[in-house]
Nucleic acid binder design. Structure first.
Lengths: 232, 232
DNA sequence: ACTTTCCTAAATCCATGGATGTAAATCAAT
DNA sequence: ATTGATTTACATCCATGGATTTAGGAAAGT
Protein backbone atom coordinates (compact mmCIF):
# COMPACT_ATOMS: atom_id res chain seq x y z
CA UNK A 1 0.00 0.00 0.00
CA UNK A 2 2.24 2.58 1.40
CA UNK A 3 4.97 2.47 -1.24
CA UNK A 4 2.52 3.28 -3.99
CA UNK A 5 1.62 6.58 -2.44
CA UNK A 6 3.91 9.44 -3.24
CA UNK A 7 6.31 10.30 -0.49
CA UNK A 8 5.14 12.88 2.00
CA UNK A 9 7.12 16.07 1.56
CA UNK A 10 8.51 17.49 4.77
CA UNK A 11 10.14 20.82 5.57
CA UNK A 12 12.30 21.38 8.65
CA UNK A 13 12.74 24.69 10.43
CA UNK A 14 15.13 24.85 13.37
CA UNK A 15 17.70 27.46 14.26
CA UNK A 16 20.08 24.79 15.51
CA UNK A 17 21.90 23.46 12.46
CA UNK A 18 23.08 20.31 14.23
CA UNK A 19 19.62 19.43 15.35
CA UNK A 20 18.40 20.11 11.87
CA UNK A 21 20.81 17.58 10.40
CA UNK A 22 19.83 15.02 12.99
CA UNK A 23 16.14 15.26 12.27
CA UNK A 24 16.76 15.23 8.57
CA UNK A 25 18.64 11.96 8.75
CA UNK A 26 16.05 10.49 11.02
CA UNK A 27 13.29 11.35 8.63
CA UNK A 28 15.11 10.29 5.52
CA UNK A 29 15.50 6.82 7.01
CA UNK A 30 11.75 6.50 6.78
CA UNK A 31 11.07 5.54 3.23
CA UNK A 32 7.69 7.21 3.14
CA UNK A 33 8.99 10.71 3.81
CA UNK A 34 11.15 13.05 1.86
CA UNK A 35 12.76 16.18 3.27
CA UNK A 36 12.27 18.89 0.68
CA UNK A 37 14.12 21.58 2.55
CA UNK A 38 15.71 22.69 5.78
CA UNK A 39 16.36 26.14 7.11
CA UNK A 40 17.47 27.81 10.31
CA UNK A 41 15.37 30.91 9.72
CA UNK A 42 11.67 31.24 10.32
CA UNK A 43 11.29 33.88 7.65
CA UNK A 44 13.13 31.79 5.13
CA UNK A 45 10.97 28.87 6.18
CA UNK A 46 7.84 30.78 5.31
CA UNK A 47 9.22 31.53 1.87
CA UNK A 48 10.11 27.90 1.33
CA UNK A 49 6.63 26.85 2.36
CA UNK A 50 5.10 29.20 -0.18
CA UNK A 51 7.39 27.76 -2.84
CA UNK A 52 7.21 24.04 -2.09
CA UNK A 53 3.88 23.73 -0.30
CA UNK A 54 5.09 20.73 1.70
CA UNK A 55 2.71 18.26 3.30
CA UNK A 56 4.25 18.82 6.70
CA UNK A 57 6.41 21.32 8.52
CA UNK A 58 8.39 20.57 11.64
CA UNK A 59 8.78 23.94 13.30
CA UNK A 60 11.07 24.65 16.20
CA UNK A 61 9.21 27.18 18.30
CA UNK A 62 12.10 28.13 20.55
CA UNK A 63 14.01 30.37 18.22
CA UNK A 64 15.62 33.64 19.22
CA UNK A 65 15.15 35.88 16.21
CA UNK A 66 11.55 35.15 15.39
CA UNK A 67 8.91 33.62 17.56
CA UNK A 68 8.00 30.21 16.21
CA UNK A 69 4.38 30.62 17.28
CA UNK A 70 4.12 33.79 15.30
CA UNK A 71 5.59 31.99 12.33
CA UNK A 72 2.96 29.26 12.69
CA UNK A 73 0.26 31.88 12.67
CA UNK A 74 1.61 33.40 9.49
CA UNK A 75 1.74 30.01 7.83
CA UNK A 76 -1.82 29.25 8.90
CA UNK A 77 -2.93 32.50 7.34
CA UNK A 78 -1.73 31.22 4.00
CA UNK A 79 -4.51 28.63 4.16
CA UNK A 80 -2.45 25.88 2.62
CA UNK A 81 -2.83 22.15 3.11
CA UNK A 82 0.46 22.15 4.96
CA UNK A 83 0.27 20.61 8.42
CA UNK A 84 2.51 21.91 11.16
CA UNK A 85 4.05 20.06 14.07
CA UNK A 86 5.64 22.23 16.74
CA UNK A 87 9.00 21.14 18.08
CA UNK A 88 9.96 22.51 21.44
CA UNK A 89 12.39 22.06 24.24
CA UNK A 90 9.80 22.85 26.85
CA UNK A 91 6.66 21.09 27.97
CA UNK A 92 5.23 24.37 29.25
CA UNK A 93 1.45 24.11 29.31
CA UNK A 94 0.93 27.66 28.09
CA UNK A 95 3.21 27.09 25.11
CA UNK A 96 1.44 23.87 24.21
CA UNK A 97 -1.93 25.51 24.56
CA UNK A 98 -1.04 28.45 22.38
CA UNK A 99 0.52 26.27 19.73
CA UNK A 100 -2.57 24.10 19.48
CA UNK A 101 -4.81 27.12 19.55
CA UNK A 102 -3.25 28.70 16.50
CA UNK A 103 -3.50 25.47 14.56
CA UNK A 104 -0.44 23.30 15.12
CA UNK A 105 -1.49 19.72 14.42
CA UNK A 106 1.03 18.35 16.88
CA UNK A 107 3.57 19.25 19.51
CA UNK A 108 6.60 17.11 20.22
CA UNK A 109 9.44 17.63 22.67
CA UNK A 110 12.97 17.55 21.35
CA UNK A 111 13.89 15.22 24.16
CA UNK A 112 11.36 12.62 23.10
CA UNK A 113 12.41 9.41 21.45
CA UNK A 114 12.64 9.57 17.69
CA UNK A 115 10.01 6.86 17.40
CA UNK A 116 7.64 9.27 19.09
CA UNK A 117 8.34 11.92 16.51
CA UNK A 118 7.83 9.49 13.66
CA UNK A 119 4.56 8.36 15.18
CA UNK A 120 3.38 11.95 15.51
CA UNK A 121 4.27 12.64 11.90
CA UNK A 122 2.34 9.58 10.75
CA UNK A 123 -0.72 10.54 12.73
CA UNK A 124 -0.70 14.11 11.51
CA UNK A 125 -0.17 13.12 7.90
CA UNK A 126 -3.20 10.88 8.29
CA UNK A 127 -5.25 13.94 9.12
CA UNK A 128 -5.27 13.60 12.86
CA UNK A 129 -4.18 16.03 15.51
CA UNK A 130 -1.64 14.42 17.75
CA UNK A 131 -0.22 15.23 21.16
CA UNK A 132 1.83 12.68 23.10
CA UNK A 133 -0.13 11.58 26.11
CA UNK A 134 2.11 13.32 28.64
CA UNK A 135 1.64 16.62 26.84
CA UNK A 136 -2.06 16.25 26.21
CA UNK A 137 -2.48 15.68 29.91
CA UNK A 138 -0.80 19.00 30.57
CA UNK A 139 -2.84 20.64 27.88
CA UNK A 140 -6.08 19.49 29.45
CA UNK A 141 -5.12 20.72 32.88
CA UNK A 142 -4.37 24.12 31.44
CA UNK A 143 -7.55 24.03 29.41
CA UNK A 144 -9.63 23.24 32.47
CA UNK A 145 -8.00 25.96 34.51
CA UNK A 146 -8.70 28.44 31.75
CA UNK A 147 -12.34 27.47 31.43
CA UNK A 148 -13.15 26.85 35.04
CA UNK A 149 -14.42 30.32 35.81
CA UNK A 150 -16.33 30.47 32.58
CA UNK A 151 -18.10 27.21 33.32
CA UNK A 152 -18.70 28.30 36.87
CA UNK A 153 -20.36 31.59 35.96
CA UNK A 154 -22.48 29.68 33.49
CA UNK A 155 -24.51 28.22 36.26
CA UNK A 156 -24.29 30.39 39.34
CA UNK A 157 -26.93 32.94 40.21
CA UNK A 158 -27.14 34.79 36.96
CA UNK A 159 -28.95 38.08 36.90
CA UNK A 160 -29.59 37.60 33.21
CA UNK A 161 -32.21 35.03 34.08
CA UNK A 162 -34.48 37.73 35.45
CA UNK A 163 -34.76 39.49 32.11
CA UNK A 164 -37.96 39.22 30.14
CA UNK A 165 -37.68 38.04 26.57
CA UNK A 166 -38.16 41.55 25.25
CA UNK A 167 -35.45 42.82 27.51
CA UNK A 168 -33.20 40.08 26.22
CA UNK A 169 -33.78 41.27 22.70
CA UNK A 170 -32.96 44.82 23.66
CA UNK A 171 -29.84 43.75 25.51
CA UNK A 172 -28.83 41.68 22.54
CA UNK A 173 -28.98 44.76 20.36
CA UNK A 174 -27.07 46.72 22.97
CA UNK A 175 -24.31 44.12 22.87
CA UNK A 176 -24.02 44.84 19.18
CA UNK A 177 -23.31 48.50 19.76
CA UNK A 178 -26.72 49.97 18.90
CA UNK A 179 -27.97 53.17 20.45
CA UNK A 180 -31.54 53.88 21.48
CA UNK A 181 -32.58 55.13 18.09
CA UNK A 182 -31.18 52.12 16.26
CA UNK A 183 -32.80 49.70 18.67
CA UNK A 184 -36.15 51.44 18.37
CA UNK A 185 -35.93 51.20 14.61
CA UNK A 186 -35.00 47.54 14.64
CA UNK A 187 -37.73 46.51 17.03
CA UNK A 188 -40.35 48.84 15.53
CA UNK A 189 -41.10 50.46 18.86
CA UNK A 190 -40.63 54.00 20.09
CA UNK A 191 -37.38 55.25 21.50
CA UNK A 192 -38.95 55.96 24.85
CA UNK A 193 -40.04 52.37 25.13
CA UNK A 194 -36.51 51.27 24.48
CA UNK A 195 -35.40 53.57 27.26
CA UNK A 196 -37.89 51.96 29.57
CA UNK A 197 -36.60 48.50 28.75
CA UNK A 198 -33.01 49.56 29.11
CA UNK A 199 -33.69 51.12 32.46
CA UNK A 200 -35.31 47.92 33.63
CA UNK A 201 -32.29 46.02 32.39
CA UNK A 202 -30.01 48.28 34.39
CA UNK A 203 -32.04 47.63 37.50
CA UNK A 204 -32.05 43.91 37.07
CA UNK A 205 -28.38 43.64 36.25
CA UNK A 206 -27.49 46.15 38.93
CA UNK A 207 -25.42 48.32 36.67
CA UNK A 208 -25.29 52.03 35.94
CA UNK A 209 -24.93 52.34 32.19
CA UNK A 210 -25.03 50.57 28.85
CA UNK A 211 -21.39 49.65 28.76
CA UNK A 212 -21.59 47.92 32.10
CA UNK A 213 -24.74 46.15 31.00
CA UNK A 214 -23.03 44.93 27.85
CA UNK A 215 -20.00 43.79 29.82
CA UNK A 216 -22.17 41.94 32.29
CA UNK A 217 -23.97 40.25 29.44
CA UNK A 218 -20.79 39.17 27.71
CA UNK A 219 -19.14 37.97 30.90
CA UNK A 220 -22.10 35.84 31.83
CA UNK A 221 -22.64 33.85 28.71
CA UNK A 222 -25.38 36.00 27.28
CA UNK A 223 -24.43 35.49 23.66
CA UNK A 224 -24.40 31.71 24.01
CA UNK A 225 -27.77 31.76 25.67
CA UNK A 226 -29.68 34.22 23.60
CA UNK A 227 -28.42 33.85 20.08
CA UNK A 228 -29.57 30.26 20.17
CA UNK A 229 -32.95 31.27 21.44
CA UNK A 230 -33.55 34.16 19.08
CA UNK A 231 -32.24 32.45 15.98
CA UNK A 232 -34.21 29.32 16.81
CA UNK B 1 3.95 0.11 47.69
CA UNK B 2 0.49 0.05 46.33
CA UNK B 3 -1.07 -2.28 48.85
CA UNK B 4 -0.14 0.02 51.70
CA UNK B 5 -2.18 2.86 50.33
CA UNK B 6 -5.83 2.76 51.15
CA UNK B 7 -8.04 1.58 48.37
CA UNK B 8 -9.37 4.26 46.06
CA UNK B 9 -13.07 4.71 46.62
CA UNK B 10 -15.14 4.71 43.45
CA UNK B 11 -18.76 5.57 42.80
CA UNK B 12 -20.64 4.44 39.70
CA UNK B 13 -23.53 6.26 38.11
CA UNK B 14 -25.22 4.69 35.11
CA UNK B 15 -28.89 4.38 34.33
CA UNK B 16 -28.35 0.94 32.84
CA UNK B 17 -28.36 -1.51 35.74
CA UNK B 18 -26.71 -4.30 33.75
CA UNK B 19 -23.90 -2.07 32.68
CA UNK B 20 -23.55 -0.89 36.22
CA UNK B 21 -23.05 -4.46 37.47
CA UNK B 22 -20.53 -5.12 34.73
CA UNK B 23 -18.39 -2.15 35.60
CA UNK B 24 -18.64 -2.89 39.27
CA UNK B 25 -17.27 -6.40 38.83
CA UNK B 26 -14.57 -5.15 36.56
CA UNK B 27 -13.44 -2.59 39.08
CA UNK B 28 -13.67 -4.87 42.08
CA UNK B 29 -11.25 -7.26 40.37
CA UNK B 30 -8.65 -4.55 40.71
CA UNK B 31 -7.38 -4.85 44.24
CA UNK B 32 -6.57 -1.19 44.54
CA UNK B 33 -10.14 0.03 44.01
CA UNK B 34 -13.26 -0.32 46.02
CA UNK B 35 -16.73 0.47 44.74
CA UNK B 36 -18.46 2.41 47.50
CA UNK B 37 -21.75 2.76 45.73
CA UNK B 38 -23.70 2.41 42.54
CA UNK B 39 -26.85 4.15 41.39
CA UNK B 40 -28.92 4.51 38.28
CA UNK B 41 -30.00 8.05 39.10
CA UNK B 42 -27.95 11.19 38.63
CA UNK B 43 -29.70 12.97 41.46
CA UNK B 44 -29.17 10.07 43.81
CA UNK B 45 -25.57 9.99 42.64
CA UNK B 46 -25.05 13.57 43.72
CA UNK B 47 -26.41 12.75 47.16
CA UNK B 48 -24.12 9.75 47.46
CA UNK B 49 -21.16 11.87 46.47
CA UNK B 50 -21.96 14.35 49.20
CA UNK B 51 -22.21 11.53 51.70
CA UNK B 52 -19.23 9.39 50.73
CA UNK B 53 -16.93 11.92 49.05
CA UNK B 54 -15.43 9.20 46.83
CA UNK B 55 -12.06 9.62 45.14
CA UNK B 56 -13.54 8.98 41.75
CA UNK B 57 -16.90 8.96 40.01
CA UNK B 58 -17.65 7.15 36.80
CA UNK B 59 -20.55 9.06 35.32
CA UNK B 60 -22.61 7.91 32.40
CA UNK B 61 -23.49 11.06 30.52
CA UNK B 62 -26.10 9.55 28.24
CA UNK B 63 -28.98 9.29 30.65
CA UNK B 64 -32.56 10.16 29.81
CA UNK B 65 -33.92 11.75 32.95
CA UNK B 66 -31.06 14.06 33.85
CA UNK B 67 -28.28 15.27 31.65
CA UNK B 68 -25.01 13.78 32.82
CA UNK B 69 -23.11 16.90 31.88
CA UNK B 70 -25.35 18.97 34.06
CA UNK B 71 -24.78 16.52 36.88
CA UNK B 72 -21.03 16.87 36.44
CA UNK B 73 -21.38 20.63 36.68
CA UNK B 74 -23.30 20.32 39.91
CA UNK B 75 -20.70 18.00 41.35
CA UNK B 76 -17.91 20.35 40.35
CA UNK B 77 -19.69 23.16 42.13
CA UNK B 78 -19.36 21.22 45.37
CA UNK B 79 -15.61 21.81 45.12
CA UNK B 80 -14.71 18.36 46.43
CA UNK B 81 -11.59 16.38 45.72
CA UNK B 82 -13.71 13.91 43.78
CA UNK B 83 -12.48 13.30 40.25
CA UNK B 84 -14.96 12.55 37.53
CA UNK B 85 -14.59 10.38 34.47
CA UNK B 86 -17.35 10.65 31.89
CA UNK B 87 -18.64 7.44 30.38
CA UNK B 88 -20.39 7.75 27.09
CA UNK B 89 -21.65 5.74 24.20
CA UNK B 90 -20.74 8.42 21.71
CA UNK B 91 -17.42 9.85 20.58
CA UNK B 92 -19.11 13.08 19.56
CA UNK B 93 -16.54 15.89 19.58
CA UNK B 94 -18.95 18.41 21.02
CA UNK B 95 -19.83 16.10 23.91
CA UNK B 96 -16.19 15.42 24.66
CA UNK B 97 -15.36 19.09 24.49
CA UNK B 98 -18.16 20.09 26.82
CA UNK B 99 -17.36 17.35 29.30
CA UNK B 100 -13.73 18.37 29.51
CA UNK B 101 -14.68 22.02 29.70
CA UNK B 102 -16.78 21.59 32.79
CA UNK B 103 -14.07 19.66 34.54
CA UNK B 104 -14.32 15.95 33.76
CA UNK B 105 -10.86 14.48 34.27
CA UNK B 106 -11.43 11.82 31.68
CA UNK B 107 -13.81 10.57 29.00
CA UNK B 108 -14.07 6.92 28.09
CA UNK B 109 -16.30 5.18 25.59
CA UNK B 110 -18.42 2.31 26.81
CA UNK B 111 -17.26 0.30 23.82
CA UNK B 112 -13.63 0.60 24.80
CA UNK B 113 -11.73 -2.37 26.24
CA UNK B 114 -11.92 -2.65 29.98
CA UNK B 115 -8.15 -2.32 30.20
CA UNK B 116 -8.59 1.12 28.69
CA UNK B 117 -11.01 2.09 31.43
CA UNK B 118 -8.73 0.81 34.15
CA UNK B 119 -5.83 2.73 32.66
CA UNK B 120 -7.89 5.90 32.58
CA UNK B 121 -8.88 5.42 36.21
CA UNK B 122 -5.27 4.95 37.21
CA UNK B 123 -4.16 8.05 35.40
CA UNK B 124 -6.91 10.20 36.81
CA UNK B 125 -6.38 8.95 40.36
CA UNK B 126 -2.74 9.92 39.92
CA UNK B 127 -3.84 13.48 39.32
CA UNK B 128 -3.69 13.51 35.56
CA UNK B 129 -6.32 14.35 33.04
CA UNK B 130 -6.73 11.51 30.62
CA UNK B 131 -8.34 11.11 27.24
CA UNK B 132 -7.72 8.05 25.08
CA UNK B 133 -5.71 9.09 22.07
CA UNK B 134 -8.55 8.56 19.60
CA UNK B 135 -10.77 10.89 21.60
CA UNK B 136 -8.13 13.51 22.31
CA UNK B 137 -7.54 13.69 18.60
CA UNK B 138 -11.21 14.49 18.10
CA UNK B 139 -11.12 16.93 20.93
CA UNK B 140 -8.24 18.84 19.37
CA UNK B 141 -9.90 19.06 16.00
CA UNK B 142 -12.96 20.52 17.63
CA UNK B 143 -10.83 22.83 19.72
CA UNK B 144 -9.01 24.14 16.69
CA UNK B 145 -12.20 24.67 14.76
CA UNK B 146 -13.62 26.63 17.68
CA UNK B 147 -10.57 28.84 18.04
CA UNK B 148 -9.71 29.31 14.40
CA UNK B 149 -11.57 32.57 13.91
CA UNK B 150 -10.32 33.92 17.18
CA UNK B 151 -6.74 33.21 16.21
CA UNK B 152 -7.35 34.67 12.78
CA UNK B 153 -8.61 38.01 14.03
CA UNK B 154 -5.67 38.09 16.38
CA UNK B 155 -3.33 38.95 13.59
CA UNK B 156 -5.19 40.63 10.78
CA UNK B 157 -5.17 44.39 10.36
CA UNK B 158 -6.03 45.36 13.88
CA UNK B 159 -6.96 48.95 14.55
CA UNK B 160 -5.95 48.49 18.17
CA UNK B 161 -2.34 48.60 17.04
CA UNK B 162 -2.65 52.27 16.25
CA UNK B 163 -3.42 53.20 19.83
CA UNK B 164 -0.78 54.89 21.93
CA UNK B 165 0.05 53.27 25.24
CA UNK B 166 -1.92 55.87 27.15
CA UNK B 167 -4.90 55.29 24.94
CA UNK B 168 -4.59 51.59 25.64
CA UNK B 169 -4.75 52.26 29.34
CA UNK B 170 -7.85 54.38 28.89
CA UNK B 171 -9.50 51.79 26.70
CA UNK B 172 -8.63 49.12 29.23
CA UNK B 173 -10.49 51.08 31.89
CA UNK B 174 -13.38 51.58 29.49
CA UNK B 175 -13.59 47.83 29.00
CA UNK B 176 -14.07 47.54 32.73
CA UNK B 177 -17.11 49.76 32.69
CA UNK B 178 -15.60 52.98 33.99
CA UNK B 179 -17.00 56.36 33.05
CA UNK B 180 -14.96 59.49 32.39
CA UNK B 181 -14.84 60.55 36.00
CA UNK B 182 -13.67 57.15 37.24
CA UNK B 183 -10.99 56.92 34.57
CA UNK B 184 -9.73 60.41 35.37
CA UNK B 185 -9.48 59.49 39.04
CA UNK B 186 -7.65 56.25 38.36
CA UNK B 187 -5.12 57.77 36.02
CA UNK B 188 -4.71 60.99 38.03
CA UNK B 189 -5.50 63.17 35.06
CA UNK B 190 -8.36 65.56 34.36
CA UNK B 191 -11.65 64.46 32.96
CA UNK B 192 -11.20 66.58 29.88
CA UNK B 193 -7.97 64.80 29.12
CA UNK B 194 -9.74 61.50 29.33
CA UNK B 195 -12.31 62.83 26.89
CA UNK B 196 -9.54 63.75 24.52
CA UNK B 197 -8.06 60.28 24.70
CA UNK B 198 -11.40 58.63 24.28
CA UNK B 199 -12.20 60.74 21.26
CA UNK B 200 -8.90 59.78 19.70
CA UNK B 201 -9.70 56.15 20.44
CA UNK B 202 -13.04 56.50 18.66
CA UNK B 203 -11.33 57.97 15.62
CA UNK B 204 -8.72 55.23 15.47
CA UNK B 205 -11.15 52.38 16.01
CA UNK B 206 -13.70 54.00 13.69
CA UNK B 207 -16.54 53.76 16.15
CA UNK B 208 -19.13 56.19 17.44
CA UNK B 209 -19.38 55.59 21.15
CA UNK B 210 -17.87 53.85 24.16
CA UNK B 211 -19.89 50.71 23.89
CA UNK B 212 -18.75 50.14 20.34
CA UNK B 213 -15.18 50.86 21.36
CA UNK B 214 -15.40 48.33 24.16
CA UNK B 215 -16.93 45.75 21.84
CA UNK B 216 -14.24 46.31 19.25
CA UNK B 217 -11.60 45.90 21.92
CA UNK B 218 -13.06 42.68 23.27
CA UNK B 219 -13.62 41.19 19.83
CA UNK B 220 -10.08 41.86 18.76
CA UNK B 221 -8.13 40.32 21.55
CA UNK B 222 -7.52 43.51 23.48
CA UNK B 223 -7.62 41.93 26.92
CA UNK B 224 -5.10 39.27 25.96
CA UNK B 225 -2.77 41.89 24.57
CA UNK B 226 -2.96 44.61 27.12
CA UNK B 227 -3.40 42.96 30.47
CA UNK B 228 -0.10 41.21 29.90
CA UNK B 229 1.57 44.47 28.99
CA UNK B 230 0.17 46.55 31.81
CA UNK B 231 0.57 43.95 34.52
CA UNK B 232 4.12 43.24 33.39
C1' DA C 1 -63.15 38.68 38.48
C1' DC C 2 -58.70 40.07 40.11
C1' DT C 3 -53.85 40.50 40.36
C1' DT C 4 -49.59 40.40 38.37
C1' DT C 5 -46.35 40.70 34.75
C1' DC C 6 -45.08 42.44 30.46
C1' DC C 7 -44.90 45.62 26.75
C1' DT C 8 -45.86 49.80 25.26
C1' DA C 9 -45.44 55.05 25.62
C1' DA C 10 -44.71 59.79 27.14
C1' DA C 11 -43.07 63.78 29.90
C1' DT C 12 -39.57 65.88 32.36
C1' DC C 13 -35.19 66.89 34.05
C1' DC C 14 -30.52 66.39 34.76
C1' DA C 15 -26.08 64.00 33.88
C1' DT C 16 -23.02 62.18 30.94
C1' DG C 17 -21.13 61.56 26.64
C1' DG C 18 -19.22 63.10 22.27
C1' DA C 19 -17.47 66.58 18.54
C1' DT C 20 -14.38 70.18 17.57
C1' DG C 21 -10.81 73.42 17.98
C1' DT C 22 -6.93 75.14 20.39
C1' DA C 23 -2.66 74.79 22.80
C1' DA C 24 1.32 73.94 25.90
C1' DA C 25 4.97 70.64 27.60
C1' DT C 26 7.70 66.63 26.78
C1' DC C 27 10.40 63.55 24.24
C1' DA C 28 12.30 60.83 20.57
C1' DA C 29 14.00 60.95 16.13
C1' DT C 30 16.15 63.12 12.11
C1' DA D 1 17.69 72.53 15.77
C1' DT D 2 13.48 71.12 14.13
C1' DT D 3 9.83 68.09 13.29
C1' DG D 4 6.39 64.99 14.71
C1' DA D 5 4.07 62.25 18.04
C1' DT D 6 2.29 61.97 22.63
C1' DT D 7 0.17 63.52 26.67
C1' DT D 8 -1.88 66.81 29.01
C1' DA D 9 -5.71 70.38 29.37
C1' DC D 10 -9.73 73.54 28.62
C1' DA D 11 -13.84 75.69 26.38
C1' DT D 12 -17.94 75.27 24.01
C1' DC D 13 -21.91 73.28 22.19
C1' DC D 14 -25.05 69.86 21.21
C1' DA D 15 -26.59 64.99 21.41
C1' DT D 16 -27.41 61.12 23.82
C1' DG D 17 -28.06 58.69 27.84
C1' DG D 18 -30.29 57.74 32.23
C1' DA D 19 -33.71 58.42 36.36
C1' DT D 20 -38.26 58.84 37.63
C1' DT D 21 -43.09 58.89 37.34
C1' DT D 22 -47.24 57.84 35.29
C1' DA D 23 -50.29 55.04 32.56
C1' DG D 24 -52.98 52.06 29.29
C1' DG D 25 -53.71 47.55 27.09
C1' DA D 26 -52.76 42.54 26.72
C1' DA D 27 -51.90 38.17 28.52
C1' DA D 28 -51.56 34.88 31.95
C1' DG D 29 -52.16 32.91 36.26
C1' DT D 30 -55.08 32.52 40.79
Amino acid sequence: MREFKRKARVLLIDDNADHLRGIKELINIETSYEVVGTTTSANMGINLIKKYQPDLVLMDINMPEKDGLQAIQEIEKLELETKIIALSGYDDADLIFRAMKIGAKGYVLKTMASAQLIYAIDEVLNGKVYLPSALSSRFFEYFQRTFKEEAATQNEENLLNYLTSREEEVLDLLTQGNNYKAIAAKLFISETTVKTHVNNIFQKLQVNDRTQAVLYALNNGFANKVRAKISA
